[in-house]
Design a protein around this nucleic acid. Structure first.
Lengths: 237, 237, 237, 237
DNA sequence: AATGAATGAGGATTCATTCAT
DNA sequence: GATGAATGAATCCTCATTCAT
């Protein structure tokens, strides 16, 4: 925990174009922030991990705050683009689109666990950062909302599905997805071989929610007052 | 802002039984950790908020780490007990039991936002703390698992529902619940009057998942290979 | 210039009442700021010179800025009080009063060269500090202004001496006094034994200015257009 | 703000003769040192203000210390030359010569406020720099001393005026002049239109001191032991 | 039972200065 | 002649932690 002298992996000022160095710094920073959190990650450690001296980090990224922000923005952008890419196909059934999107999402989160963790941490790090994640969530929620609307239309019964309700559901789904991604990653950390694949995780979530969503589309709701539960699906003639 | 400090009896050298002082400290600490995070909350601030001097905090709680751990344990215990209490009634349909449990859960999270935040933060604070939250999750997941098993039994079709799968679903549900709780609390912070009640939040979650769970109980799964989606539930007679 | 470990004059946390420690710190700070200037004096050095650890300095004095401000204020107060004390006697001729004030001033500046230097430095250290010195100057200038007015009255010819002009002269006198004080102190630093005494310095200044002031009181001015100079005093009957 | 940077020819790799570049750097440096002080002015800022890159500054001026020294020397030279020029006329009365010198002095200080400020700052910046200003003062003091001697001779009464005393008076006068220059410049900064002209400032100083100096030439001194004051000049026949 | 006094260790940030091109 | 890339060394400041009372 004390000295940070000897490690020196091959440093000693290798000249490199600014863009490259900047990427290295962001990589190191994302890793550090993911592992230790915003407060605990030290600029010393980040600089050393990036293979540069601290002043260079400050020269390029201004301050710890801006460095963190740069990380957050990079990861936000990457994740959103991935999901957008995954749901580009528009003329297939909504559930297939959702399925594609979820697979893209879980593939990305599996491939970039540190990035995901950084986004997660950003949410509890005060206005400027949380704001960024809120904006990201809004973007993804929008994508999902469109999908749900399309599903409702496909189902023919766009009757009374209030826009606000759709948005709420979209939130729930996104939240669940984030939650699952974390869970899946944690699993993988504990037992790398055994962790669920992106496909499996996506399937779990689809199974978990699609039937419920469909029912809601049809105007069927679960309420505490219904007599018993396990038969309602068939009981409606 | 939901302060839970106010006990402040007048400070000075007011002699007080250890238990009381300790509670004051934990209250102050939970509030501080919730608001600023583990790293940023300072022992100075906590001591001052608790109305005692720093050395006393150290005398009773040993170190910042142990103080945080004490907070986490207290909040874990409270939350688990609440949920257990909520699902004590055993001879009613499983969905009603789940409904009761969720209501208890969301009521508690609404009443103790700082406690919830602390638990949330603990998850990213390194092994000893994260471990505690994992254990809590396991306890709650167990409760849910039992419920799901009972539901399957009630439905008569306990066919092929692998224990591992049930556990996965329970995890998904718990994750979704946590996610929703956060969302609901955030809402309440932004627009106190308008935030959803615990009942509404619980209903949202039931709507979101119950139909899906039921289908799974019956062995029906969503798969990417099915022809189209919106009609499968009712269309297959 | 580098390590600041070994010196340790007898430190090792001796318990002392806050007031005492605070005074020690201010003493050390005044010395350091005088010797190296605001920017260059390091908190490390000041703390070590005061025989305490840096955190204690911060605990008591908040920041480098506030520490400097505390020094400035202390020295301002001391100097102003000294001058006020020196000119307390009111029913003696104005020149005697001025003489007394100047002696008090030069005695003080000779006894507290560091304090004087700090005040001098404060003037170039940005608004908050310069302001403080400006205020001090105003206080002293006021004292002098009153004296000059009294002198004019004593002389019977209070004719056309505009208030603004008196104030200008007072400024010039105060400026000259400051300048002389510095010069005297510098002398003393170079050749301690030989430096002028406070009395001598005060006499020099009186000689330098009193005749001129007197003439001004009488409405006689030096102007570039007068034919020759050395005889004007007697030549105008 | 009195910028004197504007030369900026377009930056880039504009090849320029060394002398020109050096002048630009010195201009920028003088402005920076005047505004922020030796410690706080950063080489980055100076280089940028000069429109060159930092390494070039180092190539030409070696180090911050030498850069500052170069500034000081340049400003010293300019000021001394100005005063020397102002007092070149030798066969006019001494007071006229002094008057001319003061006018030159105050004109210069009004025209080059940054230079003056740099000299002022140099006095508190440690031996090598302070030394330079002391030397300058000595040169100017010498000029004044010669003038005073001439005045004494003119007055016919070169009786007992010790050389040391003349030197002391010269110092006082130079100090007063510096002080007034600063005061005048500060005035001009606060209310540009209203600040005193160089002529006015010079007149103020002449009024302030000439009568006193004349008396001293004549061997008349102010002493604390004289009975009363306001009438001594004329009353003692 | 409770605290005022004190500190070691480290963290963010900046600066003067130098290579390699 | 001129610079983009890079760094060692300090500086201000904070914090968890402990004595002596």
């Amino acid at each position: 925990m004390g000295t940070n002298v000897g490690t020196r992996t091959g440093k000693g000022h290798k000249r490199m174009p600014r863009a490259v160095r900047e990427r290295q710094m962001l990589d190191a920073a994302v890793a550090a922030f993911a592992r230790h959190g915003y407060q605990s990650a030290s600029m010393d450690d980040i600089a050393e991990a990036a293979g540069v001296s601290k002043p260079l980090v400050y020269l390029y990224l201004k301050s710890k705050e801006e460095l963190f922000m740069a990380c957050v923005r990079r990861e936000v952008k990457a994740l959103v683009e991935t999901v957008r890419e995954g749901t580009r196909e528009r003329d297939i059934p909504a559930d297939r689109q959702l399925w594609n999107g979820l697979r893209a999402f879980f593939t990305h989160t599996a491939a970039h666990p540190d990035g995901v963790t950084v986004l997660h941490r950003a949410r509890t790090q005060g206005e400027p950062f949380a704001q960024e994640v809120v904006a990201m969530r809004a973007q993804i929620t929008d994508i999902v909302t469109v999908l749900l609307a399309q599903a409702a239309q496909d189902a023919g019964c766009d009757s009374e599905l209030a826009e606000r309700e759709v948005s709420g559901l979209a939130h729930a789904l996104v939240g669940a997805a984030e939650s699952l991604a974390e869970w899946a990653n944690a699993r993988r950390d504990d037992a790398p071989a055994e962790g669920p694949s992106a496909k499996e995780t996506a399937a779990t979530l689809m199974n978990f929610c699609w039937a419920g969503l469909e029912n809601l589309m049809k105007g069927e709701r679960w309420t505490p007052s219904r007599p018993t539960s396990p038969t309602h699906g068939a009981a409606s003639p």
